[in-house]
Design a protein around this nucleic acid. Sequence first.
DNA 1: CGCCACTAGTTGAGGTTGTCAACTATACGG
DNA 2: CCGTATAGTTGACAACCTCAACTAGTGGCG
Lengths: 142, 142
Amino acid sequence: MTSSVKHSAAVQEAWSLVGRLFWQVRPRMLGVAAELGLTPPQMFALRALDPEHPVPMRELAVQLHCDSSNVTGLVDGLEAQGLVERRPDEHDRRVRMLVVTERGAQVRQRINEVVEEVPPALASLSAGDQRALRDILRRALG
Amino acid sequence: MTSSVKHSAAVQEAWSLVGRLFWQVRPRMLGVAAELGLTPPQMFALRALDPEHPVPMRELAVQLHCDSSNVTGLVDGLEAQGLVERRPDEHDRRVRMLVVTERGAQVRQRINEVVEEVPPALASLSAGDQRALRDILRRALG
DNA sequence: CGCCACTAGTTGAGGTTGTCAACTATACGG
DNA sequence: CCGTATAGTTGACAACCTCAACTAGTGGCG
């Protein structure tokens, strides 16, 4: 379905280097999940939630690109560990709002610390390169 | 365990933008796996193999950062679809070399086309930015 | 009001992933 | 030749993920 599109050799190589970057970071992600007693999907789910703004379960399913029934299980796990609560919605009795608990917020914070940890390859760049990289990516992603 | 390290705001933001890039691409990855009748892990496994240079199963386990017993199952799946063959090694009768079949190589090619497809955000950069991006990432990843 | 189509979430079946522990077969050093 | 180490498989078990079926609740429309 996806068709081959012509790309410059430069951007092609850049993209492949970005791929290597992510591959390098993968073990760290799995590590923090294990450290916190979460499975990777549970970790992504918690990270996708916002402690300030509860959302319906459906919303989480959309953000994770998965089926609602899958979210049921994920949330079961998070709720069992006291990281998230299902709270009935006031206006629509069908929906359950996902509320991040106090402890859930702490765990989520810890996850974010690790996820946002800049990989050594990037950290070792010169200050100028770091700024240039940021500026280019800003232009790319708006 | 992983501790917070000081990073410049610039590289921090750059890294977070890279994260957004990957999130954008995820659906495409899942899509091509489905299109080819593969599960994502099977797809990664096939992609990790080199049609030119067969490797022992152990080697694949290392590259995928997973247990050998897991590789057994993955390879079972790929072999059942005729994409990979287990071939005895000449020098060590314990090891099975993983040989990508003709059809396996075609499927792998298709996977790579999609994986290497540069996301629109990067493709829309100016030629100069594309080259600069490549050069910076080269310096980062050596 | 009363029907009907639609939506949120759960449940259960079924296939896959991933880990660990136990096992077989083979290699290799002393 | 014996002991230790390694490659791969198997089985048990927990989790993921999708689909189809179901319940409960919503909201439009005659």
